[in-house]
Amino acid sequence: MDSDEDERIPFSQRPEWSDIKPVPQDDGPNPVVPIAYHEDFRETMDYFRAVYLADERTPRSLRLTSEAIAMNAGNYTVWHFRRLILETLNTDLHEEFDFIENIAKSNSKNYQIWHHRRWVAEKMGTEATNMELKFTRKILSLDAKNYHAWSHRQWVLQALGGWEDELDYCLQLLEEDIYNNSAWNQRYFVITRSPLLGGLPAMRESEVRYTIEVILLNPDNESPWRYLRGLYKGDAEALVGDPQVSCLCMKVLSVRGNTFALNLLLDLLCHGLQPNGELKSVVEGLTNSESDSIDPSLAIKVCSLLETLDPMRSNYWAWRKVTLPSHTKAI
């Protein structure tokens, strides 16, 4: 809009609008939070109200909604009316994608744009699949954590398909930024929901291997730790029974104290892990040698360690300590 600002002809001077009587906003005599609208904005909305109230679903109304949306992409009423017009006129929706892309350029974090995009893509069906995957890629190349873009992409995959390259895409984003938690989440989405991969049971082994590699390269990155735990969601038995997991904790902790490793270890102990001597001595090595309490359980030791190592969460760890399941206290 910016560059067109000077050339904009007011609706009142456009012959095609001469039959319309603009409807001013009814703000009451003494409104609160009144906005000092620019004249362009006020006039556009006055004409919008006129066609909206008359339910005039015509090409000129469609053009009017374009102008109104360009001025305020957050007006859900205008977007809604636009969809009604598009339906009535049976408009070719290909152009709609360009319109949305233009609006998204200036503000890609707005519920309305993405809801509209989903509506259009749904109407188009599988014809839109590649375009939508490309579009979200483009938005994500500018902001790899755009929440709306990810939600849209997940919807596209589920409703229209296009799963073939998705795991590669996740891998590519993670190679660019291993801290990108949105990419980790998408990876989880793909391995658990892709119809091509066989779900979590089929993927667990290779995913665990990959995640452990990543963690060992940088144990201070929370995302892969949560991802690893997620690979055993709903299956605590498998989590506790997989020696790779406790082994990972041990490896990381043998170098130095690490909050995420201790957090996972505590989780393992709460779910029934019987710690071996090696694990015990690694934790022992991290605590002050003169442990004042009389032979506390490993889980209690881990909580105490976390209280000092992670002071921001000392209340949380103290609470975990007093709520430990009774079976952990004997070990």
Binding site: V33, P34, I35, A36, F41, M45, N72, G74, N75, T77
Partner: peptide
């Protein structure tokens, strides 16, 4: 509450929220 500038036009559909 008493007056907002033109830049608030982008929140024109959120005036109840502003309240």
């Amino acid at each position: 509450l008493r007056q907002l500038g033109p830049s608030f036009s982008v929140l024109d559909a959120n005036r109840a929220w502003l309240c």
